[in-house]
Simulated assay, not measured.
Amino acid sequence: MARVVRFHQHGGPEVLRIETVDVAPPARGEVQIRVKALGLNRAEALLRRGTYIETATFPSGLGLEAAGIVEAVGEDVAGFAPADAVSIVPPLSMVRWPAYAELATFPAELVVKHPPELGFETAAAVWMQYLTAYGALVDIAGLGRGDVVAVTAASSSVGLAAIQIANRIGAIPVALTRTSAKRRALCDAGAAHVIVSAEEDIRTRLAEIAGSNGVRAVFDAVGGPAFEPLTAAMSPGGILIEYGGLSPEPTPFPLFCVLTKSLVLRGYLVHEITGDPARLARAKAFILDGLAHGALKPIIARTFKFDEIVEAHRFLESNEQFGKIVVTI
């Protein structure tokens, strides 16, 4: 028996319940984890509300990231043993492999022995943010030294990961944030420049920063009207990678800029990386090396207890956080 978080209908944070259920042993190729910490992601709030790319089957579990200790291993699993400290690469389906639980089971290929110097709270904050940012900036965009990259929703965990990765490869990260409240923190987190979208003209500021070369890449989680000034500031042959849709407003297609600059506008899911063993191996090597050398440092906004999961989700949806929200068990 173990406590798990489930919901029986779509809705706000209040639909989340902690229930005690029987937990099956790991199947062939799976590893069961005694969870010590969870990393929260906006995808979980979307699943809870019924607006995610995956459909919940009630009662539904949820959760994409965890760190803990190996409890048991299934048949045909090599390289893991009980008591190993591990963290989890986000699975393709959080309905099939939910993380919000005292005991959670995952495919062995998604289980990672993280660097021993990482505590469980930090380890639970690693994989979604860095895999998402790495896949976009390094694997797809191929950013290099001196390239300017504009990062929207920059105070999110993925936005902060993108800033750190850009700095590691010698690119120039420009953080976009809605208000000036987080400007200082973004500079402290490594942003070379900060643009406050509610107070400054995005196109003008990006042109001032990037100069005649223009913005080589845009890493966008928002969409909406900002598409036009963002693409207007891009360099010929530049790439805009869209991985979210936070704006409630329509997203215009910037036809003139796309045609005259031969731009690439590309949708992106982290599953492109996690579902490809070779690309995932390269990403893991990059991230583990960055963690070991201190170039990549997860920023934790706030930590909640497992019994406070409803409050944690309310904070997740408040947009007040700077970095990752973690829940401990």
Score class of each variant (00 low, 15 high):
residue 312 A to D: 09
residue 278 A to P: 03
residue 300 I to A: 07
residue 258 V to Y: 03
residue 304 F to R: 04
residue 262 S to M: 01
residue 278 A to S: 10
residue 319 N to R: 14
residue 244 G to Y: 05
residue 290 G to F: 00
residue 274 T to F: 03
residue 255 L to C: 02
residue 266 R to C: 07
residue 315 F to Q: 05
residue 318 S to A: 08
residue 312 A to S: 13
residue 253 F to Y: 15
residue 258 V to P: 03
residue 280 L to D: 04
residue 298 P to E: 11
residue 282 R to S: 15
residue 317 E to T: 08
residue 312 A to F: 01
residue 245 G to Y: 05
residue 244 G to P: 04
residue 287 I to S: 12
residue 253 F to V: 07
residue 314 R to Y: 01
residue 309 I to H: 02
residue 261 K to H: 11
residue 276 D to N: 15
residue 249 E to L: 13
residue 284 K to L: 15
residue 299 I to H: 13
residue 256 F to W: 14
residue 300 I to H: 05
residue 264 V to E: 07
residue 290 G to E: 01
residue 296 L to W: 07
residue 257 C to Q: 14
residue 279 R to K: 15
residue 294 G to P: 10
residue 246 L to C: 08
residue 249 E to D: 11
residue 310 V to K: 04
residue 317 E to G: 03
residue 283 A to N: 02
residue 282 R to K: 15
residue 313 H to I: 03
residue 279 R to D: 03
residue 268 Y to I: 00
residue 284 K to W: 04
residue 279 R to H: 15
residue 305 K to E: 15
residue 307 D to T: 06
residue 295 A to G: 14
residue 295 A to V: 05
residue 259 L to Y: 06
residue 257 C to R: 10
residue 274 T to R: 11
residue 247 S to Y: 05
residue 255 L to F: 15
residue 259 L to E: 07
residue 266 R to P: 03
residue 314 R to D: 04
residue 282 R to W: 05
residue 271 H to T: 14
residue 287 I to Y: 02
residue 307 D to P: 03
residue 295 A to L: 02
residue 284 K to Q: 15
residue 306 F to G: 02
residue 254 P to A: 12
residue 317 E to W: 03
residue 295 A to S: 15
residue 313 H to M: 05
residue 291 L to K: 07
residue 316 L to V: 06
residue 288 L to S: 06
residue 266 R to I: 09
residue 269 L to N: 02
residue 269 L to S: 09
residue 286 F to C: 09
residue 303 T to P: 02
residue 303 T to H: 14
residue 261 K to W: 10
residue 278 A to Q: 07
residue 302 R to T: 12
residue 272 E to C: 02
residue 274 T to S: 11
residue 297 K to A: 04
residue 258 V to S: 12
residue 300 I to M: 06
residue 244 G to C: 10
residue 295 A to I: 05
residue 255 L to W: 12
residue 299 I to R: 13
residue 295 A to M: 00
residue 267 G to H: 13
residue 289 D to Q: 15
residue 283 A to S: 10
residue 298 P to Q: 08
residue 250 P to T: 08
residue 299 I to N: 08
residue 290 G to W: 01
residue 245 G to V: 06
residue 263 L to Y: 08
residue 286 F to E: 00
residue 249 E to K: 14
residue 290 G to Y: 08
residue 288 L to W: 01
residue 282 R to N: 05
residue 252 P to R: 00
residue 308 E to Q: 15
residue 261 K to Q: 09
residue 264 V to F: 13
residue 299 I to M: 04
residue 317 E to M: 04
residue 285 A to N: 13
residue 280 L to P: 12
residue 276 D to L: 11
residue 293 H to T: 11
residue 270 V to A: 07
residue 301 A to V: 08
residue 282 R to C: 06
residue 289 D to T: 12
residue 303 T to D: 10
residue 271 H to L: 11
residue 245 G to C: 13
residue 314 R to F: 09
residue 298 P to L: 10
residue 255 L to H: 09
residue 280 L to Q: 14
residue 294 G to Y: 11
residue 269 L to I: 14
residue 283 A to G: 12
